[in-house]
Design a protein around this nucleic acid. Sequence first.
DNA 1: CGGTCTCTTGACGGAGTTCAAAGCTAGTGG
DNA 2: CCACTAGCTTTGAACTCCGTCAAGAGACCG
Lengths: 189, 189
Amino acid sequence: MSASIFKGISFTDDEAELVNAHLKKLVVPKGTILLSADQLVACQYYVYSGCLRTYFLDDSGKEHTIQFAVNDWWISDYTAFFSGGQSILHIDCIQEAEVYQLSRESMEQLYGEVPSIETFFRLKMERFFACFQKRILSDLALSAKDRYNRFVQAYPQIEQHIKNYHLASYLGITTESLSRIRKEQAYQK
Amino acid sequence: MSASIFKGISFTDDEAELVNAHLKKLVVPKGTILLSADQLVACQYYVYSGCLRTYFLDDSGKEHTIQFAVNDWWISDYTAFFSGGQSILHIDCIQEAEVYQLSRESMEQLYGEVPSIETFFRLKMERFFACFQKRILSDLALSAKDRYNRFVQAYPQIEQHIKNYHLASYLGITTESLSRIRKEQAYQK
DNA sequence: CGGTCTCTTGACGGAGTTCAAAGCTAGTGG
DNA sequence: CCACTAGCTTTGAACTCCGTCAAGAGACCG
């Protein structure tokens, strides 16, 4: 498994075995909550199939989606995962998923045993960082309609997996507004 | 200098010297553009005094501020800095500043020579990442008024340095709206 | 002083929200 | 295989927050 998860790294046989020993495969049914707020975050997850998401639940009970993860993405409440503090995000399963779990502890250990793993995750985080920045810019600079169009263009494979209200909570609008945007876009084709 | 920039790391004398050799001190006058869009990003900057910011210039000519940096912050167009691609952000100087420049090249070299530096930057980036996430949540979950209040509470030392129109472009509102929010807040005290 | 940059104020308009109701769709059990 | 229900999406009408445009008032600097 390690070979396909850590694409781009070439392991020796020994290294591959070390890595595999730390990965735990989970089959996650739709609707499962993998993490709730106010917990310690021990793991991150590699998504092989299906779809997970992280969201924030605000004081008024509204959900705000931070990230979707489909095939070949990693997901966790990274802010808490890194700091060792309590989670503020929830992780739930939107579509039955096959994931591989990797604990913080295992990571630290692997950093020592297989140095290329540390580089792999540094690069992952750098790309993740870029995604976040792009999103902040979208939120600041674009209208709801433009944010929607950009999303479906950038992530068609995610749109297939999710409900409209999930997408609305990601775009920062109501389901009603999203519905109207979609209607309008349909006419323009 | 390296001792105060890399607080928390204890260097040997040799290491400190290696690090200092890579840092270049700059005194930056107010109004200077340290980086424009569509360039290669060779450096990041440690701010010792004064104030810099990064912003995005959208198609309609509007500025969207991504980050302010005052004493003890680092700043760059990190998305481009990491990927090696072209910058999309501008960096300008809001208040005459004393900064220390560190090039990508120097960093790579230091990673080899002084291993604790790599850990230092990994932690820096993890904290940076958390800031970005907090901001996405603010934008999604809070009204303009609440975002303003949260900002002045979280970063009073930044508010001192910047104009209202800088803050407005960070909060994602117009200067007029910010003016009205401030007026309203004044009554409530 | 005079000019430019910055902030404030007012009137109006528009994008998106809220609330309520109706129309779909998909999954479940008889 | 159909019927029912619960979950999801659409639609409409009223409302709200914030943006736009325009004008005026301060503040700062040569």
